[in-house]
């Protein structure tokens, strides 16, 4: 156990250090791909907080991801760069607020109901952006200039530069990881895990379960917003597809593929999923089949659901490592 604890302490720093060095080695395509992986890792960790730690299977998590992207596109001036200093907290704040409002409703339900209702509310948002002129309809909105991050006249981070944007995203990914790790090790986090294991007993012990779940839901919404904001910056546009249910399904797949209930699992899952997507849709390798890469992805998802319920992290524990669910407990 001691050894596992020590590994838990230094391994994330080693990984972050190696990732930070990556732009020195490779500067274009793979760096952009890795940026995408890191953004998805934030997204997956935020969902893992709900699915893996609070026991809430949300199938509408893309709503908060997409909402933040739209918030950036709509809040900033049309052709000039917006300031990251207020658009990022603003976008995340909107997501937290929306998560709290929807949370008040969806948390009245459990089990299958919860899954359907989260999906339905996400889809509601999809139609808001798809059917109205608010967000440019199905075409979406271009973000012509990436947000600026200046201090007075000094440019702190130039988001137009791929490597600087990469480091910023890495900073946020690491920040999310350590923040969540901290929170999950706290009394609050323990209460969430208790709720996941035995909600009824938590209530009988005197925990106001609903409030804890709502707080978790709001936090997860805000962090999904962080990921969505960064994704919108990277892609340079938003359209309704970023909050479609395919996105919600994809992020759920990342969480389970990596191994839910472990933060590093969410990161591994995001990495594996994005990579798979790239490989399967690579025309140079698969030719005409690459066009139908979702077929292979669909089959793979079904196989994971049937044969790999604990994900890749679970696979590792099979080879003699300690149970991954204890990560946060003996942190």
């Amino acid at each position: 156990m001691m050894q596992g604890g020590a590994i838990n302490r230094w391994l994330p720093w080693v990984v972050i250090g190696l990732l930070a060095l990556f732009p020195m080695v490779e500067s274009n395509f793979y760096m952009q791909l890795l940026t995408k992986v890191l953004i998805m890792a934030i997204f997956a960790m935020s969902l893992d907080l709900l699915v893996g730690y609070t026991g809430l299977v949300s199938f509408g998590h893309a709503a908060y991801f997409g909402l933040a992207g739209y918030a950036l596109a709509l809040m900033g001036p049309k052709y000039e760069a917006a300031s990251l200093w207020w658009t990022l907290p603003g976008a995340m704040g909107i997501c937290v607020a929306f998560a709290l409002v929807t949370g008040l409703l969806v948390l009245r339900t459990r089990g299958i109901y919860f899954i359907m209702v989260t999906l339905a509310f996400a889809q509601m948002l999809y139609f808001v952006f798809h059917d109205t002129k608010l967000g440019g309809g199905s075409d979406g909105i271009y973000i012509y200039a990436k947000p600026t991050m200046n201090f007075g006249e000094t440019v702190l981070v130039n988001l137009e530069k791929l490597d600087q944007f990469y480091w910023l995203v890495l900073f946020f990914t690491a920040g999310t990881y350590f923040l969540l790790r901290r929170i999950l090790g706290s009394s609050f986090g323990r209460a969430l895990m208790g709720i996941k294991v035995n909600e009824h007993r938590m209530r009988a012990l005197g925990f106001p379960v609903f409030r804890y779940q709502l707080a978790s839901f709001g936090l997860a919404g805000g962090l999904a917003g962080l990921a969505g904001y960064l994704a919108a910056v990277q892609f340079g546009f938003v359209n309704p597809e970023i909050l479609s249910w395919h996105q919600s399904g994809a992020v759920l797949m990342m969480v389970i593929l990596g191994g839910m209930g472990t933060l590093h699992g969410a990161v591994i899952g995001a990495f594996a999923f994005v990579l798979l997507q790239e490989v399967l849709s690579n025309q140079a390798w698969f030719g005409i089949a690459a066009k139908h890469w979702q077929l292979a992805m669909g089959i793979l998802i079904m196989l994971v659901a049937l044969y790999l319920p604990q994900g890749l992290a679970g696979l590792m524990t099979k080879f003699g490592r300690k149970p991954a669910t204890e990560e946060a407990v003996d942190d």
Binding site: F59, L252, Q294, L295, G298, M302, V304, A305
Partner: peptide, 28 residues
């Protein structure tokens, strides 16, 4: 049949995968 005793989470995942398969088969 393999899903009856499983957590809803895996039912969601498997049937989501099934959607992708159906969509692509339809396309093919």
């Amino acid at each position: 049949r393999h899903l009856y005793s499983r957590d809803h989470l895996y039912q969601v995942l498997l049937t989501y995968g099934l959607i992708l398969v159906f969509e692509e088969l339809r396309s093919l």
